[in-house]
Design a binder for these strands. Structure first.
Lengths: 247, 247
DNA sequence: GCAAAAGTGTTAATGTTACACCCATGT
DNA sequence: ACATGGGTGTAACATTAACACTTTTGC
């Protein structure tokens, strides 16, 4: 589009342009999201996703990185940031039409955030303990979580949850927390090590008070996981296929 | 987001809000997109994706459906419509800041469209023969095509390319055109019939001048394909030829 | 009968799952 | 030695790919 006659130009819709962030990490074995207590505006003192209006001449992704920095001190170079989708329902913001572009940010576990300019408080909350949020943020959160769950399978996203360098065991903990399943330690090891470009061994090892020292890894360059890390099917295994019969 | 103090409110960004449509179909065995020749505005007489500004108090999806109707006569009830992503770079529209939400529309093969209000011409073009488009529409098109290719695997999207009722052979033609591969006729048949809820037999058959009559199907209610339709790996091996003659 | 497309059966190769078992370390 | 987690081997099972063969129609 963006087709427009002179008449079309005159009556074209203008809307507020904002970004909202679904910042996920794994803390204590649970998938966790960063929430802020809104300091002002509508839904004051409601919990919400961090975010804010895009500045003039500012790219969406830069706005997302800026909000992240302002609210958490995180720098976008350290983490994965991707667009999820846009929410622009007419009634979603009482101040008027606002189109909010949601971004998913994946970060290693971090210290509790400090409240920023737009928030009176900020904290990490396990995604299954999140209450009613401001605006349509419960929907945005659900979409972000769903996106991260499915991308774990075929993208190297899981490694973005780990502070580098990390062990295979820590990586497995990410998969278990995000998917909410238990994975076989031995099969998992072989599977991830068999994915070309996923993990790069540092040559170092981490010794721990318990167990054999584990080799350390960094994120590799692979953009997609081939083969994928199989996600256990929730309903168990399929039984025999029934071939479709006609008449 | 949508956090805003009184100060934040005053300086919030406002932008034009538009939708662009990647309307795909399969024609003559090729994945094909609907393009319009821009009748006015910037990029006049350049080919572009159909789309336009969102009206006041109009939902994004309604705007997408309206543009589709205006430019092609298609009704959204007949086709699959989903949001892909939002493009809002500062320089993408010479008229100013415009956020364009891209939608993917999948339609059965249709007669050539008629030009609408914003377009001086409209036509179907095979996606691998698309030239330089207006704005950033080549990028939007590429993202839409990529989305449709990956969704074919695990969603019932392929059936939206077929006018109902359809045969298994027609459905296979969709997969072959979109993925650009040849699929084994017999394995494909078993695979799709084994997916619960994908296809619903009508009980009717379609007789053709050549070959055995094929049972007809409609789209089922499945939202996801379990198991998925396996997509041949690109770095793969086998090129299949199906001569149709038995050895 | 013949060509063409639908549909079934079968097998080899491949992939996945589950678990036995060994390794290396701190206590 | 033992507990703990890292790492390898392997057999059972499930899935996939390739293709032989049969069925049903129009001409």
């Amino acid at each position: 589009m963006t087709a427009g006659t002179a008449a079309g130009l005159a009556r074209r819709t203008r809307a507020g342009l904002a970004v909202d962030l679904v910042v996920l990490t794994v803390r204590d074995g649970a998938l966790t999201v960063l929430l802020v207590d809104r300091g002002g505006g509508p839904f004051r003192h409601r919990w919400a996703l961090p975010g804010g209006f895009v500045h003039h001449d500012e790219e969406l992704e830069d706005a997302a990185a800026r909000e992240l920095r302002e609210e958490t001190g995180l720098h976008a170079t350290d983490l994965h940031l991707e667009q999820v989708r846009t929410y622009a329902s007419c009634g979603r913001d009482p101040r008027g039409r606002v189109a909010s572009v949601a971004y998913l940010a994946i970060a290693p576990d971090l210290p509790p955030p400090t409240a920023g300019s737009d928030a009176s408080d900020a904290r990490w909350v396990a995604v299954d303990r999140v209450g009613r949020l401001a605006f349509d943020h419960n929907t945005i959160l659900a979409d972000g979580v769903e996106r991260s769950r499915s991308k774990l399978e075929y993208s190297p996203l899981a490694a973005s949850f780990c502070p580098e360098p990390f062990t295979i065991g820590e990586l497995r903990g990410i998969y278990e927390a995000v998917w909410g399943v238990r994975l076989d330690r031995r099969s998992f090891h072989r599977t991830v090590c068999g994915v070309d470009g996923f993990l790069v061994p540092t040559g170092e090892r981490r010794t721990s008070p318990t167990g054999r020292p584990a080799p350390l890894y960094r994120r590799g360059r692979a953009g997609a996981l081939r083969p994928a890390i199989p996600r256990p099917s929730p309903g168990g295994h399929r039984d025999l296929r029934e071939t479709g019969r006609q008449q």
